[in-house]
Design a protein around this nucleic acid. Structure first.
Length: 894
RNA sequence: GGGCGGUUAGCUCAGUUGGUUAGAGCGCUACGUUGACAUCGUAGAGGUCACAAGUUCGAAUCUUGUACCGCCCACCA
């Protein structure tokens, strides 16, 4: 016997204890049986506090996993990445800065130890946070044990790519973050519009015969200019090509070259060449043999290669100083405001500096070709589909991937340089080397580490034990679904596809579901720096994890963003909490009325409920329940979790609670016979609703479901079977008839409200219908109508006796409802009410007659559409005539 | 600059292949301590589906254009 439910629903203690219970039962462990369903997850970065995006992401994934599990599939939740990388390093560096020291004071080894300790200490916190938002805990734990596996896979991949000639090292212009002191990939340098200026500077010709005017947004880089370029077909400057200019401030004499990459239209058509600090300039300089002069330190200060007054200046201070100096010489022709996109470090938001340096790259074009093909052939599907177009566009224009980072925390690049000056070979190795394989000389490992995503792109197989061939790998690769945020489509998703195809020969997953971004009411992305975030843990604390999940899942249709108001949690999350409360009370009520054994609805048990024992309401709710099963199942198949949540919500609240439970109360209380049938139907349909809702609201559904009768002890809803649609439950007649009862109750209630009848007061009602079937249904259900509409005496007949002071309404089948209210009825008011109702329906009739009078419509529209429209017209016409009749009987003056 | 999406009730959003009297939740109004639930119940107000033209028997839904909002990509210095 389970303990009785508390009157008030308090989700808190419940969630923790359920998680413990589920874990003890191994509920999240893959069973090894059944068809596997693998989903990949990006974990939160260990350094960052959980944000709402994680809440949304985990809720979706956990819901899909739970649904798949109930549908008999073995599930695996594959963790996403490890802790290597810039974010973790940043946190520890901030801590060090607060302590007045730095990684450079500490040294590399001590720093690594420090980060490791930090990660270890944070694990428990992160696990707790993940559980709080609903991540299936066992798999989040795996995430922390993954790093050793990953480093092997990373090396293996590095070596293989190198052997295939797809990894190379070279001097290139890369994005450099002067604060993090590391290179960034193109994806990590986020372009943002910045308002700046464009300066036109005069560069005197070396022979003193005039000026060339260059346009630049970064005048400070002119100190590193090694040339000037124009378009080869630009007539204005044709005579200048091959001549020289004397670079102001430095006095350096540099050549004028012609290159087709120059845009004649922009600026003056003359571009200063700074090969060391601009990607395009670097490219052009290469073609013309211009040297690259690096004038910036890693911290983006001017080096000693510039004239004395500018040395050591920060790049922005240098800009001011250079402009001032040029102005003093009268060399600034013009300044105009100018907006352009500038790269920012995606972690610390510092403006990125293009910098010439030695870095490792992966040649991507060969990897992109099959990945593009997978999408074109339709094997790789994106939800929503338009994301696939973005993917394809990126793949088509793919550029080489800069994978080296000048960080101290991450997977070290597995290259060992021989220190023997006569050998000096770089050795790429799967294992740590102590000697040079060629000359046995001492070796030194490359100082740099790999981009975090260089380990992450391998997760779908490295997490399963690759490069070993493990049983897990055989069973769970390839996987099925990747659920993630669109922000990391290129960082992660596209690269996982490429790695899967390259190293496993198959896609890592076949569906990529990209959910929306969590934004505030001004549609700004929630972020720590803006301070517009919502902490999911606060929400869990105040409203419960179920409320959080229900809200985020029902708020995000496929491909749309989730808008939440950080200033008003109540507005966002009350709906979820209220629904949980509704479920709780529904459960409490039902359990309170289950005093005997509950008879089964189907099966071979002799106590099974016979069809002829079912009343109209029973048949109706069973049919509605079946409809819900179909809707929710389809919704899950199509990743439309909002539809799934809404379908159960509607069933539970509007059908089960508002109508069915209200209808069966007399039977449950023993005032009418058939209590056992009502109990069975209510219990069964509630059971189905709980199971369908479990993926969305796991805690409350488990709590209620385990208390419902008929489940073996120790059973968990996680392993309960997903409800199946049942042809026998379909019952359009019951649906139609019950709708009529609902309409009748609604009509009487509306009349009561219209005339201000006190809710407690009973009234008399008359139903007049020319349809024998309607009369039959309504009189058989008169108990229901009387109770729910508070009617003391209900007459149903073919015609109504004269009733002067009565409120009147008409149902969709043309049945008239009269509520005699004597003096309460104001005749004029009732006449006006009827007239406006008549006018309203007459308008519909007119429109419908026009439609049906149109021969084009009748001949061209499908037959079933025409039939339906004819039926509608007939129904409205009947309603109008009934209402007219009532007006006549009232002898309305107008 | 190229590509893509959005614009439906005061707010946040649904609306599956064109065929309903265009829906939900919150908010709002009126009434209500009916023995599951005031985290509730009943009734109600509120929308020319951004604008314009077109296709069609029929358009919130398809086409084109306009306006605004947003996203992705991009080496015009």
């Amino acid at each position: 016997m389970t303990a009785p439910l508390d009157p008030a629903y308090d989700p808190r203690g419940l969630e923790t204890s359920l998680y413990r219970q589920w874990e003890a039962q191994g509920a999240f462990q893959p069973s090894g049986r059944g068809d596997p369903y693998v989903i990949a997850m990006p974990p939160p970065n260990v350094t960052a506090h959980l944000h709402m995006g994680h809440g949304l992401n985990h809720a979706i994934q956990d819901a899909l996993i739970r649904c798949a599990r109930m549908r008999g599939r073995d599930t695996l939740w594959l963790p996403g990445t490890d802790h290597a990388g810039i974010a973790t390093q940043n946190v520890v560096e901030r801590q060090l800065a607060a302590e007045g020291t730095s990684r450079f004071d500490l040294g590399r080894e001590a720093f690594e130890a420090r980060v490791r300790a930090y990660v270890g200490a944070t694990e428990a916190t992160i696990l707790g946070q993940l559980r709080a938002v609903g991540a299936s805990a066992d798999w989040t734990r795996t995430y922390f044990t993954l790093e050793d596996r990953m480093s092997r896979a990373v090396r293996e991949v590095f070596v293989r790519l190198h052997e295939k000639g797809l990894i190379y090292r070279g001097k290139y212009i890369i994005n450099w973050c002067p604060r993090c002191l590391t290179a960034l990939s193109n994806e990590e340098a986020e372009k943002e519009e910045v308002r700046g200026s464009i300066w036109r500077l005069r560069y005197p010709l070396a022979d003193g015969s005039g000026f060339l005017v260059v346009a630049t947004t970064r005048p400070e880089t002119m100190l590193g200019d090694t040339g000037v370029a124009v378009h080869p077909e630009d007539e204005r400057y044709a005579a200048m090509v091959g001549r020289e200019v004397r670079l102001p401030l430095t006095g350096r004499v540099v050549p004028v070259v012609a290159d087709a990459a120059i845009d004649r239209e922009f600026g003056t058509g003359v571009v200063k060449m700074t090969p060391a600090h601009d990607p395009l300039d670097f490219e052009i300089a290469g073609r013309h043999g211009l040297p690259a002069l690096d004038i910036l330190t890693p911290e983006a200060r001017l080096t000693d290669d510039v004239p004395e007054p500018f040395r050591g200046l920060d790049r922005f201070a240098a800009r001011t100083a250079v402009i001032a100096a040029l102005e003093a010489e009268g060399l600034v022709e013009k300044v105009e405001p100018h907006t352009h996109a500038v790269g920012h470090c995606y972690r610390c938001h510092t403006i990125v500096e293009p910098r010439l340096s030695d870095q490792w790259f992966v040649r991507m074009a060969p990897l992109a070709a099959p990945a593009l093909q997978a999408h074109r052939s339709g094997r790789l599907r994106f939800v929503p589909a338009r994301r696939g177009d973005e993917y394809a566009q990126w793949m088509e224009g793919i550029r080489d991937w800069c994978i080296s980072r000048q960080l101290w925390w991450g997977h070290r690049i597995p290259v060992f340089y021989c220190e023997n000056p006569e050998c000096g070979r770089p050795n790429v190795s799967r294992t740590d080397l102590t000697h040079c394989p060629s000359c046995q000389g001492p070796v030194r490992q490359d100082e740099d580490v790999l981009d975090t995503w260089f380990s992450s792109w391998l997760v779908p197989f490295s997490g399963l034990g690759w490069p070993d061939s493990t049983p897990d790998l055989a069973r769970y690769y390839p996987g099925h679904v990747l659920v993630t945020a669109p922000e990391i489509l290129f960082f992660w998703v596209a690269r996982m596809v490429m790695a899967g195809l390259e190293f496993m020969g198959d896609l890592p997953f076949t569906t990529v579901y990209l959910h929306g971004t969590v934004r505030d009411t001004q549609h700004r992305k929630m972020s720590k720096s803006l301070g517009n975030g919502i902490d999911p843990l606060d929400v869990v604390d105040q409203y419960g994890a179920d409320a959080l999940r229900f809200t985020v899942l029902s708020g995000t249709a496929v491909g749309t963003d989730l808008i939440l108001d950080p200033g008003d949690l109540e507005a966002s999350f009350a709906a979820g909490r209220n629904f949980a409360n509704k479920l709780w009370n529904l459960g409490r009520f039902l359990l309170g009325h289950l005093d005997g054994p509950v008879r089964p609805l189907a099966g071979s048990d002799p106590a099974v409920i016979r069809r002829d024992e079912l009343r109209l309401a029973d048949r109706w709710i069973i049919a509605r329940c079946d409809e819900m099963v179909r809707e929710v199942t389809v919704a899950f198949d199509r990743f439309r979790l909002n539809d799934a949540a809404a379908a159960v919500y509607r069933f539970v609240w509007s059908d089960l609670a508002d109508w069915y439970i209200e209808q069966i109360k007399p039977r449950l209380h023993g005032d009418l016979p058939g209590g056992d049938v009502a109990r069975a139907v209510a219990t069964r349909t509630f059971d189905v609703a709980l199971r369908l809702l479990h993926p969305v609201m796991p805690f409350i559904t488990e709590t209620l479901w385990t208390r419902l009768p008929g489940h073996p002890p120790g059973a968990s809803i996680i392993r309960a079977p997903w409800p199946c649609p049942d042809e026998r439950a379909l019952d359009s007649e019951a649906q139609e008839h019950f709708r009529l009862v609902q309409e009748a109750v609604g009509a009487i209630r509306a009349i009561r409200a219209e005339y201000g009848v006190q809710p407690g007061q009973q009234v008399r009602a008359v139903i007049a219908s020319s349809h024998p079937r309607s009369r039959d249904v309504l009189s058989r259900e008169q108990d229901t109508i009387r109770r729910l509409a508070r009617v003391s005496e209900l007459q149903v007949g073919p015609d109504a006796p004269e009733a002067g002071g009565a409120g009147t309404a008409v149902l969709s089948d043309g049945s008239a409802i009269l509520v005699p209210l004597g003096d309460l009825i104001d005749l004029k008011r009732e006449c006006a009410r009827l007239r406006s109702e008549i006018e309203r329906i007459e308008e519909l009739v007119a429109r419908q007659e026009q439609k049906l009078g149109n021969t084009a419509f009748v001949t061209r529209a499908p037959a079933d559409v025409v039939t339906r429209e004819r039926e509608k017209l007939a129904s409205w016409q009947e309603q109008v005539s009934v209402l007219r009749d009532k007006r006549e009987r009232l002898a309305c003056p107008d």
